[in-house]
Design a protein around this nucleic acid. Structure first.
Lengths: 209, 209
DNA sequence: AGTTGTATGTTGCATTTGCAACATTTCGAA
DNA sequence: TTCGAAATGTTGCAAATGCAACATACAACT
């Protein structure tokens, strides 16, 4: 069940969705859901799989986010600020679209589940801020080595372990750190040679401290 | 008046603050308010002036944020994630402290102004996400030149003008872009020489497009 | 006006990085 | 299994950048 509907039972959910004038869309595989999200909306993946993709001026495409069942996206939730972003379905995908302005404009004494909904949204947004802050903290490090170590430290602190299971490919990690993949690969090699880490596939073990 | 109390009148504010069990603290000049904010709180500067400062392992101190009257700070609102951050008053400062968990735990049907308060918080957090996304978009550019141009473009688009009034010093801009100040200065010189921009003090004029 | 501290501008140089090009490995679909 | 695409590893080299050191400009305070 989606975080958005935490503490809201199914009957109330139905009423809520009516109240918010939401729409459910069915998209075929490989459809562009929204090229530029101009309108202020919140989308929920009810079923299927999609990707947020940025295409830069060189034509290079990067997967910015993967959207699975129950994932949420939206103008000010995901990183869609840039006008180079598209959301593309990779399977047949069912999406719930909620108008953000409608959420805000509704009278707040209308229904208790509506207030709970706002509260759920608030929790989601504060979590997102935490994630953004983490990424900014990493991106402000000046060398590739420091970015990697910062990433490792944050992961390690969060999971309480020195064994890191990369949640994505090294290629994607380089994107996340905003560095050249081959340069990152080189730096990882040095870190291994100097005895700071071990790697086996996408498993990285921290050997320091 | 503070965004946090938008559409909440003074009488209701008083009740709300009681309901949320808030505290008001008076800090003398040059006091450390919170070294590491471990607890989940939201702070509001009621009066005075303070700074969020990061001290790195070299002892270099950077002003991350300036907090003036009505500004809001907090574990997941400001960039306090790193454990190297301190909030220091620069004048005698009056601060309102709200426990975030208390906000979330309260029954949501209790009072209408409480629901409005949550809604206000939600608006604030989504705005913050937008700002973070902007910064990330800038930080993911690979060269200093591209970072500068991205910063200029975002500013220009937001204000609808090609004349940029830097809201802070060049030193702080370098921090914001996470690049070396002298290297940034050099790049600005090149941009001037190549006819892309003009500068006069902290006013930058875009000459392209 | 003088003093002190901070912001800004400049430059040489060593280091880091991106880029391109290629080899090798892994993965997924037919 | 086989095949092709994508991911990963590696390296030389030119370009970008950080760093240090210094000069100058500016601002605040006495």
């Amino acid at each position: 069940m989606n975080k958005l509907f935490n503490k809201i039972n199914v009957k109330e959910q139905t009423k809520l969705l009516k109240l918010l004038e939401t729409n459910v869309f069915n998209f075929k595989k490989d459809t562009i859901i929204l090229s530029t999200i101009k309108e202020n909306i919140i989308g929920v993946i009810l079923q299927g799989y999609a990707q947020i993709i940025r295409t830069d001026y060189n034509g290079n495409r990067t997967i910015i986010e993967e959207l699975e069942e129950n994932d949420i996206f939206g103008s000010s939730i995901s990183s869609l600020s840039s006008n180079e972003c598209q959301i593309i379905t990779k399977e047949d995908t069912k999406v719930l679209i909620i108008d953000y302005d409608r959420i805000i404009e509704l009278e707040n004494n209308s229904f208790p589940y509506y207030n709970q909904f706002i509260k759920n949204l608030l929790e989601i947004t504060t979590n997102i801020i935490d994630e953004k802050n983490e990424r900014i903290q990493i991106l402000t490090k000046k060398t590739i080595r420091d970015k990697l170590l910062e990433y490792f430290n944050i992961y390690s602190k969060k999971h309480g372990t020195k064994i890191i299971y990369l949640p994505f490919s090294f290629t994607d990690l380089a994107d996340y750190l905003a560095v050249d993949r081959s340069a990152m690969s080189r730096e990882l090699k040095y870190l291994k040679e100097e005895g700071f880490i071990n790697t086996k596939g996408r498993i990285i073990t921290l050997l320091y401290r």
